[in-house]
Design a protein around this nucleic acid. Structure first.
Lengths: 221, 221
DNA sequence: ATTCTAATGGCACTCGGTGCCAAAAATAAA
DNA sequence: TTTATTTTTGGCACCGAGTGCCATTAGAAT
């Protein structure tokens, strides 16, 4: 909500507002007037800053409801780094993702509102893809480390994309029921993926109809 | 390329151009001048139509490089509908996806260019999310039918999202190597997902640490 | 030729986003 | 206190995407 300015220390004019304050104001306007119905000028006016200034804090209108995402990403990176290396890859991922999406109870309603906005407004849904790319990168780096390949290779990228998909499906489901438990929904979503994708494995070597060996790695998690 | 007008039949002025012609012209301009560097006015001029008219054929500039996607979706729906019901879900999905992404050799370079554009230009990458939603819906409907749940439920949505993720990872990989085989890349991507997500299963009932039964279905593919 | 119909395309306008730059405000130096 | 330095602000003009409105155009039917 309000950032402390620990060291207003060095020279120059003070900031007229803060990143998170702008985000808050915009978010509230979006929630009760609608995203497309709220103009940037209105947000700037509501925040008491010039429109030009607002665009220095946020690159686009679409970025406003996201607030500052980076600390959350760093946090997830840390969680993954701390994961027990004996834990199967998929379990480490599930736990990190759940941790990443855990918020204090008093933030629950705000979180729901924000996510509803992000997932229901087409413009935001689309734009979010760019934010998700950073999120995927965190996952990919972790998976790459575990499989001893580069983050950019197919297996980490595939897993990262798939994890994102699972999370988004879980969120969509969570938003539909007022009483839904987010953590539980994530667990079920992961279980669904495991059931379907794991179904081809039990028959052991059945994946070789198409013959030729691959230059890509087929990881054993 | 050129649509036949089977029945110019009924009254009114003739169309100045066609959907696919506009798409072609725009695509070429995007490819050799860059997406952001090409204005809608330039496209309209190149196509010899008014800017206003162009916006009747395509809702946004972002839609231009996609051409008409719907027939492809219908085709995938058909492929899935024809799938052997004894085939495991995941195999049916893999095959349909591969079929969906198979193009004649002479379209290969064009396809690469288009996909490179769609996956590398941030604006398009973001916008594509909306197209992918339709694609996911096709998958979700198929999965829902197989699992005897509603398309909207968690399992179909999760699988659909995960499939999308797998496909996008495969495409990104394919675009990096001139000589890469798209089909093979898809197969490897699916295999990666199966390996990682299937890893939790072999221990059979190990998914119950967190106790309580779920109101969601946990499908057996 | 006239009428009907449907597509066209120009015009003006809104809104998001950017480059430019003078003015404001805060600190550091004199 | 005054002056110089530094940094942010915010106004202005401008661009490009997208839309509502509407007179015009061109083909088909009468």
């Amino acid at each position: 909500m309000n950032d402390i300015k620990p060291v207003p220390s060095r020279a120059g004019r003070g900031q007229a507002t803060s990143h998170s304050e702008l985000s808050q104001i915009a978010l509230h306007l979006f929630i009760d007037r609608g995203f497309d119905e709220t103009t940037v000028d209105e947000i700037a006016k509501a925040a008491g800053v010039g429109r030009r200034t607002l665009f220095r804090y946020f690159q686009t209108k679409n970025d406003l409801p996201w607030g500052n995402f980076d600390p959350l990403l760093d946090s997830m990176r840390m969680t993954l780094a701390r994961a027990d290396r004996n834990l199967p890859l998929i379990d480490a991922l599930r736990e990190a993702v759940i941790e990443f999406n855990s918020f204090p109870d008093d933030e629950r309603e705000m979180h729901r509102s924000r996510m509803r906005l992000l997932l229901s407004v087409p413009t935001l849904m689309a734009h979010s893809t760019l934010r998700y790319a950073e999120w995927r990168q965190v996952i990919a780096e972790f998976v790459a480390d575990r499989l001893d390949v580069r983050p950019h290779d197919l297996p980490p990228q595939t897993i990262a994309w798939a994890c994102l998909g699972i999370c988004l499906a879980a969120y969509e489901q969570w938003l539909e029921r007022d009483d839904a438990d987010l953590v539980k929904t994530f667990e079920v979503a992961f279980a669904n993926a495991e059931a379907v994708f794991g179904a081809a494995l039990p028959q052991q070597e059945s994946r070789h109809e198409s013959g030729r060996e691959s230059e890509h790695e087929s990881p054993r998690a």
